[in-house]
Design a protein around this nucleic acid. Structure first.
Lengths: 310, 310
DNA sequence: CGTCATCACAGGCTGAGCCTATAGGAACTG
DNA sequence: CAGTTCCTATAGGCTCAGCCTGTGATGACG
């Protein structure tokens, strides 16, 4: 049984004539005749009696008709459902966004998407950058925006879109007088977020590279998971921290009103990039998310103009 | 979009691998690959991301899946529905049966069918023999059992299965002393049924032929539609009638207890026959009805053994 | 870094599906 | 009742979808 046979069957049933059915469907009469014959053969029962002028449905055909209509309706449903997803009217848009990027643009990005495509579901995936790159590599995620320490990763294409300065935050104005050097940093009492992923956290990687020149390893007094907790602890004067400037601007007034920030010396930057599988053909949904996320991020952090893609 | 593509899609979706899907479906891997590719092309959206080892469903695929399952389930439904009709478990059996034949065997025949095939619907079609032959010719009826005056009819195959004597019934014992001749018949006061179809009613055609030899036309005093009314009128002594012996045996005790019957001279017989379109391949349902109806009729009327079909 | 698993691609074969042309039967018509 | 019309079935031929096998590319894994 094929969809084509069912379509021919319904046309013949409604027209009461194979010739008329063929006309309606845009085929030659023998073609429809053959389809009906094959359908009858596969069902093992005649569907029409051939009576000189036209055909007459058997009771089997009477019974088959609603089933055939249901099948074809289900096919229509399937097609229109997919079509509406292709037009981004319905369906799910899944996008990876981790840590600082989500902090900057997460909620606003979702709002942007929903405003432009009211029918869609949005999933913003990612608890940390390794998870995100993993999901990308496994194919569960199509694209993501994350903070990346390096611009090379096996099998992935990384397109930097913005960078954000790393700043030293403290509750003690004394320590904010002038930019913090590697030496001073290595002597500071620090609280750092992302403890579980400390090995791959981009801010820590950058700090490790910076301190490497002084021959020291970065030491942290306190380890927490989320940036918010770290900022709160800074506000309580228990430690200082290094976070991105965007996060500082956003979180300090609320969580540590007495604290301030100062640049590092030399200035360090965290890079926010779009990441996807190498040579992937991106879906309209992914392209939309990339476009909107880039716009949002570049409104907050310092844009990096994309080099012309090769 | 084809059913085949949907089957391949579902297998690939569930297996997470085109190779495994191909194994499950019994195809080579490139065949399934091609089906998926064609489906993606016709939908205008990728369904899977190819990620080295296996494939991963996109959100479009997630959404397509329930639709695909619904389509295939509807197809299964259609097939099993038709199958159950072919096995005479469900569906409608339509059979033509007119006048005297229905009077003899109608209810019992339906009971027979329902006993053997509890799930089916039964339609016993036919108010008169012309209607029945018309429906046969137009193809709306597949087969019928009717009383036929002649054994030839354009485009139809007529197989006699039983004959029934025509008897003269009367409330007056005097008129039942000896067989009724054409002459006496032509002088009788008659009530006859089937008035609307008097021109094609088989009993009347037989009587016309019988009277033709005497040079007379049959005259009826009273015209009614149904045999029961005619018998009742005979019971009231208002007229005599000619009906089949089977009808007389069945109806006289109930509707005209004082009346009796006597043969015609020469004896006349009405023929009950199975009729269907010439060269028709009969469905199992029609064959069943023919078999059961024949058995019922032959239990009541005098069987005519079928000549060996050529 | 070699091996294995998986997918894509190429080439070739078969048959489904489409067409046109034609024959045959049923129904309508003058 | 013969001619016309309408419809279906059949035959023959063409094209392409769909299947296969074989092979190459690529990512995963030990």
């Amino acid at each position: 049984m094929t969809l084509h046979q069912l379509r021919c069957f319904l046309a013949a049933y409604e027209e009461g004539s194979l010739t008329a059915a063929a006309d309606r469907l845009g085929y030659a009469q023998p073609s429809v005749s053959e389809q009906i014959r094959n359908l009858e053969k596969s069902l093992g029962a005649p569907l029409f009696r051939r009576v000189g002028r036209g055909v007459v449905a058997t009771t089997v055909a009477d019974d088959l008709r609603p089933h055939a209509e249901r099948v074809l309706a289900a096919v229509e449903d399937a097609q229109s459902s997919v079509a509406s997803q292709v037009r981004l009217e319905t369906g799910t848009i899944r996008f990876g966004m981790f840590g600082i990027a989500r902090l900057y643009a997460g909620a606003d990005l979702v709002a942007d998407v929903l405003r432009r495509h009211p029918g869609v579901r949005v999933e913003l995936i990612g608890t940390n950058s390794t998870e995100v790159t993993d999901e990308l590599r496994r194919g569960r995620l199509e694209a993501a925006m994350i903070a990346v320490p390096q611009l090379e990763s096996e099998g992935l294409t990384i397109t930097p879109v913005a960078r954000d300065e790393l700043v030293y935050i403290s509750n003690d104005p004394e320590r904010l007088r002038q930019p913090v050097t590697a030496r001073r940093l290595s002597e500071a009492t620090l609280v750092m977020p992302e403890t579980t992923f400390r090995a791959v956290d981009s801010v820590r990687i950058i700090l490790r590279q910076m301190l490497h020149e002084t021959g020291r390893n970065p030491q942290t007094r306190i380890e927490v998971e989320d940036v918010e907790s770290a900022v709160e602890l800074v506000g309580m004067g228990l430690a200082d921290a290094v976070i991105t400037k965007g996060a500082a601007v956003q979180l300090l007034p609320r969580l540590a009103p007495d604290a301030g920030w100062v640049s590092l010396r030399p200035a360090q930057h965290d890079t926010l990039a779009i990441v996807h599988r190498r040579d992937a053909i991106l879906s309209p949904a992914a392209q939309l998310m990339i476009e909107l996320a880039t716009a949002r991020i570049q409104a907050i952090a310092e844009p990096i103009r994309a080099p012309r893609p090769r």
